[in-house]
Design a protein around this nucleic acid. Structure first.
Length: 653
DNA sequence: GCGCGATAG
DNA sequence: TCTTCTATCGCGC
């Protein structure tokens, strides 16, 4: 996000230069007053005549306590206990059971154990399982949308403007439009306002996104729907966990006013907040009121304009797909490493792991970097890392990308050279961190597919680069649900993608099946009886939706001793929006689809599910279906958004 | 290209 | 107190 904002600023600056003084992003100097501010706050794009034009529709999706969720998927028994994910002596995140008992993110393990002696700890120092699941989430989103941007491991922005527009064109009666989930500030929806309709439609698509991620990957999260990335991110956390909130433009002012402290604005970090404080600015509103010209004197034009815009809810940055990472690094922290031999040992361990990741990535690194942190930290320096980097010799690059393990020795040598450029080993030293990093990654290797990053274990399957392809959601009637509800449909894959011609497995929409890449089709087919024999589901029970297998997902998640449950339990803790259908439907029922059913049918289904549910509300009947599938090591199945339009399975006949 | 700083989760 | 283990981008040289 921060990077995006910076990137956005350059575009922003162009706007300043080319369109002043009428540019919407150029307030110009002002003698302030609140009325002026509310006039400047981004309540939607304005055309030159001052009327509101159509806004973009951006979704920010933020997974609930991501590391903890991944651990709970790997070991379902952890769902009901207070769980903390530990890195060294820090609880980096914890589940909601633990939160209710007073555990917080980034708490010291000792403090957490004091607060909650029954806290169960798992180590989260190896990020690979989280990284893998994280890229699966992004990959899933990219199947439906061309514009997906990752932010860290657990957040994604999706620009859904085009899909909103195509659905609105199909919408017969705009007066029927409603909002799915919460509306920020409980602002009434006005269907005569174009941008309200766009955002309302966006809220339904966001619900489908959340449902797809839940049904395919078993993960819950929050979504924010707004007209730019900044506002979508700010609003997404309003209701947690597993809920979504839409910001209508008129509520931008109260949203910004609700922020406590300048650092709560994404893009304003600790340092900038400190500098702003020296100007006497403490709140977002202080920053809004502060004359831009004065701000520029203190921060420079670039930073000043960016943060001033942010304070007004203006964020011109676009949702920018990043593709595979631009660097791969591996680091470890410790209390004390003070001999060269220890350094060499640590560096070798780090390199071995990093080489494995580099090999799986498939690209060739051209630059190698070693980073250290010394103790005590240098005075006057808060953040004390030092690094040295050097080119990776060609022969070594070849070894690395071909996977031969004799790259380790030369790399350790290289690392020690860099180490000696930083540390004089004739003097005492003490390090508390070592990090190795490959950057300048070139996709030159014959093995070559950088896209394989998303699907390590099946290098034959290459992910298409996100294209501006047609969204299938607006095409065929055969791909609409029985209720006429628009459902997410995958983006068309590239034409070079071969297609299998077999009939789909039972329960899978044939038209959807035909759209899948051939390898996925094969995997689907291999997961049904009589094909590869790896799974044994018979025809799905009523209420059960047969699912797509996510390649290698199960193997990834498979813990050594615990059965896999691809989906979350259906319990009060993991459930979302109180009073909304999402909270009341079983996990294999798409809440979006459910809400589109006639009200009487909804009631009937709810009543049926309720009767079949234990008093503890943990075992809805439909969950039996989940246990049908995927017990072997090669057979994960999850219900898919492609298939969850099978309304006929909702209700036993 | 290099090393660092700022920002983010 | 700025923790852990990453990752990105911009600046000045």
């Amino acid at each position: 996000m921060a990077e995006e904002c910076r990137e956005g600023v350059s575009r922003h600056d162009e706007l300043y230069e080319s369109q002043s003084p009428q540019c919407q992003y150029c307030p110009g100097d002002s003698d302030d007053e609140l009325t002026w501010i509310s006039g400047q706050v981004d309540t939607g794009p304005q055309s030159s005549n001052g009327t509101k034009g159509p806004c973009r529709v951006i979704v920010h999706f933020d997974m609930d306590c991501f590391y903890a969720q991944v651990e709970m998927i790997r070991n379902p028994a952890l769902r009901t206990v207070p769980l903390g994910v530990q890195q060294k002596y820090i609880i980096v995140t914890c589940n909601y059971v633990a939160r209710e008992l007073g555990v917080r993110k980034m708490m010291l393990v000792t403090d957490a154990m004091e607060k909650c002696p029954q806290l169960v700890l798992v180590s989260g120092e190896d990020l690979s399982p989280y990284r893998e699941i994280s890229y699966r989430v992004t990959g899933l989103l990219e199947m439906f949308f061309p514009l997906v941007e990752r932010l860290g491991l657990d957040e994604n922005f999706v620009d859904i403007t085009e899909l909103v527009e195509s659905r609105l064109k199909q919408q017969m009666k705009l007066s029927d439009i409603s909002i799915n989930g919460h509306i920020y500030n409980q602002q009434p929806l006005d269907v005569t306002v174009q941008n309200h309709c766009r955002l309302a439609m966006g809220s339904h698509i966001a619900a489908e996104i959340r449902a797809a991620i839940h049904s395919q990957l078993g993960l819950t999260g929050c979504a924010g729907i707004a007209s730019n990335k900044l506002l979508a991110k700010l609003v997404s956390g309003t209701f947690k966990p597993n809920q979504q909130t839409t910001l209508l433009p008129e509520s931008t002012v109260p949203l910004l006013a609700s922020l406590r402290g300048l650092h709560t604005l994404p893009g304003i970090g600790y340092r900038t907040a400190c500098r702003l404080e020296t100007l006497g600015l403490q709140s977002v509103e202080d920053l809004q009121r502060f004359p831009l010209a004065n701000l520029e004197k203190e921060l420079g034009a670039t930073v000043a304009r960016r943060v001033h815009s942010l304070s007004l809810g203006i964020d011109p940055s676009s949702v920018t797909p990043r593709g595979p990472p631009q660097s791969l690094s591996n680091e470890d922290s410790f209390r004390k490493v003070s001999t060269e031999a220890e350094v060499r040992q640590k560096v070798e361990e780090l390199i071995i792991i990093l080489l494995d990741r580099m090999y799986k990535d498939g690209r060739t690194p051209r630059t190698f970097r070693l980073t250290i942190r010394r103790f005590p930290r240098p005075v006057n320096k808060w953040f004390s890392r030092e690094s040295r980097q050097c080119p990776v010799p060609g022969f070594l690059g070849q070894k690395i990308c071909s996977g031969v393990d004799d790259a380790v020795g030369p790399l350790v040598k290289l690392a020690m050279k860099l180490f000696h450029r930083m540390v004089d080993t004739s003097l005492p030293f003490r390090l508390t961190l070592l990090s190795v990093c490959f950057t300048n990654l070139q996709s030159s290797c014959t093995k070559g597919s950088i896209q394989a990053f998303f699907v390590h274990e099946s290098p034959g399957k290459q992910k298409d680069t996100p294209s501006q392809g047609v969204l299938l959601g607006s095409t065929g009637s055969s791909r609409r649900s029985a209720g006429g509800t628009p459902q997410l449909e995958p983006l068309d894959s590239s034409s070079e993608c071969e297609r299998a011609t077999s009939a789909p497995p039972f329960g899978v929409d044939p038209s959807v099946f035909q759209e899948l890449p051939a390898d996925i089709q094969r995997e689907l087919l291999s997961s049904i009886p009589g094909q590869s024999g790896s799974v044994t589901p018979s025809a799905p029970e009523p209420g059960v939706v047969t699912a797509l297998r996510i390649p290698s997902f199960e193997r990834l998640l498979q813990p050594s001793s615990v059965e896999l449950h691809p989906g979350r339990e259906w319990d009060a803790d993991s459930c979302g929006e109180i009073g909304s259908p999402a909270c009341d439907v079983p996990p294999n029922v798409d809440p979006q689809v459910f809400t589109e059913l006639p009200l009487d049918l909804q009631k009937e289904l709810l009543s049926e599910w309720k009767h079949e549910t234990s008093p503890l509300k943990t075992q809805p009947p439909a969950r039996r279906g989940r246990t049908l599938v995927s017990r072997g090591s090669k057979s994960a199945t999850t219900s898919g958004s492609q298939t969850n339009n099978l309304l006929k399975y909702f209700k036993p006949s």
